[in-house]
Design a protein around this nucleic acid. Structure first.
Length: 364
DNA sequence: TCTGGGGTCCTAGGACCC
DNA sequence: TCTGGGGTCCTAGGACCC
């Protein structure tokens, strides 16, 4: 676990020219530290934010003290408690998390165009500024001053490397990767460090002898193409730190969904139908709150053995009405639920979204 | 007593149209 | 006997991320 708060500047060499300057900011153990703002007496304890073990909860965020017990996010809470019986489990405080997130994003926005990736993470485009390093330090300092929350930042000429850099220095990190030193910075890191290389891809890469970014970068295009098709070349370029994706503001939402895992698997059709109805109404509320309408409705099932199905249907027209969403969701559910089959999770989602304004314009 | 909830993107196959 | 192609829409599943 990296614990240094010292600035790290691999291959720092003179004042480099920045073709683009992209900062990635990632809040450290965000949910945990937001909780500690209001409960300072919990500081220093092994603490996690997440769902209760008796409700099949998982860890959303773990304090650094909890991590020493081998506890990580996404771990089943039951497992976490086994590893640390004295673990303190607290729920999410969504209003507080949202408020802190908005304050952080407002600070970032005052420095340049931002692309938020989640509540606790965003890119800032500092291209064209004369002193991106100083700005990166100023951003980190202002976040700390104005929110009392620690963050890690990474500065590089592309998004991929900025992201890896912010991760590299955690917690409280400040890592600059000057232009030209990207490949050297990435080379010793495991392929898993690349954003987009998950467990499956990493396993396949390791199986063909490519464990580090340096090995991936040096692999023959033919070998990669054979194993990964077109994606092979993408991977190789990422491992070299070549990434031209822009920092883009204003992503349009593509889907909205609501799902629930039951404390115990349920096989009672009446109970399940009620939950499908509630979930469809949740989706309807979300749509209307955002002033959107949807054309496709999907129902998601997860059986006791964790296998997961989705079944979707596209309508003739956009809708944001509970009545329509509930009807389609219930139809899908009835058509595809083998009566009596115990269900672990139910979900209802909508996609094919449009804003109401555009829908009205089309209707006229 | 394993395994949340909210998303995005990609692939692949079938239907359908020109 | 032949069985083109490209484009778009739709569905389902999987990898991945926070």
């Amino acid at each position: 676990m990296p614990s240094s708060a010292q600035p790290k500047e691999p291959a720092a060499a003179g004042e480099a020219q920045w073709p683009r300057a992209i900062l990635h900011l990632d809040m450290d153990a965000f949910f945990v530290n937001v909780h500690l703002l209001d409960h300072p007496q919990h500081a220093g304890l092994p603490l996690v934010v997440g769902g209760r073990p008796e409700h099949r909860g998982v860890v959303a965020a773990a304090s650094y003290e909890a991590r020493r017990f081998g506890i990580q996010s996404a771990m089943p809470m039951r497992t976490a408690v086994q590893r640390c019986p004295s673990l303190l489990i607290v729920g999410h405080s969504w209003p507080r998390i949202s408020e802190c997130s908005q304050r952080v994003m407002a600070i970032l926005e005052s420095f340049g165009p931002i692309e938020p990736m989640s509540v606790d993470e965003a890119y800032v485009d500092l291209s064209g500024t004369s002193e991106p390093r100083h700005l990166a330090q100023a951003i980190k300092a202002r976040v700390r001053q104005e929110t009392s929350l620690p963050a890690s930042v990474g500065l590089a000429a592309c998004k991929l490397v900025a992201k890896v850099a912010s991760d590299h220095g955690k917690p409280d990190g400040y890592t600059v990767v000057p232009p030209g030193s990207e490949a050297g910075f990435l080379a010793p890191l495991p392929v898993r460090a690349i954003h987009g290389v998950g467990p499956k891809t990493a396993e396949r890469l390791v199986a063909i002898g490519l464990s580090t970014c340096g090995q991936l970068a040096a692999a023959s295009p033919d070998q990669l193409s054979l194993a990964f098709g077109k994606y092979g070349e993408v991977l190789r370029r990422l491992a070299l730190g070549e990434d031209t994706r822009p920092v883009s503001q204003g992503h349009a939402r593509k889907s909205i969904s609501s799902e629930t895992t039951f404390d115990r698997d349920i096989a009672d059709g009446a109970v399940l139908a009620d939950r499908v109805t509630e979930l469809a109404r949740d989706a309807g509320r979300s749509l209307r709150r955002r002033g959107m309408a949807a054309k496709t409705v999907a129902v998601k099932f997860r059986w006791a053995d964790f296998t997961t199905y989705t079944r979707q249907r596209t309508l003739a027209a956009f809708t944001d009405r509970d009545e329509d969403l509930v009807r389609v969701a219930l139809d899908l559910w009835r058509e595809h639920w083998p009566a009596g089959q115990p269900i672990r999770l139910l979900g209802v989602g909508v996609s094919g979204l449009t804003t109401k304004g555009r829908q009205l314009a089309l209707d006229l």
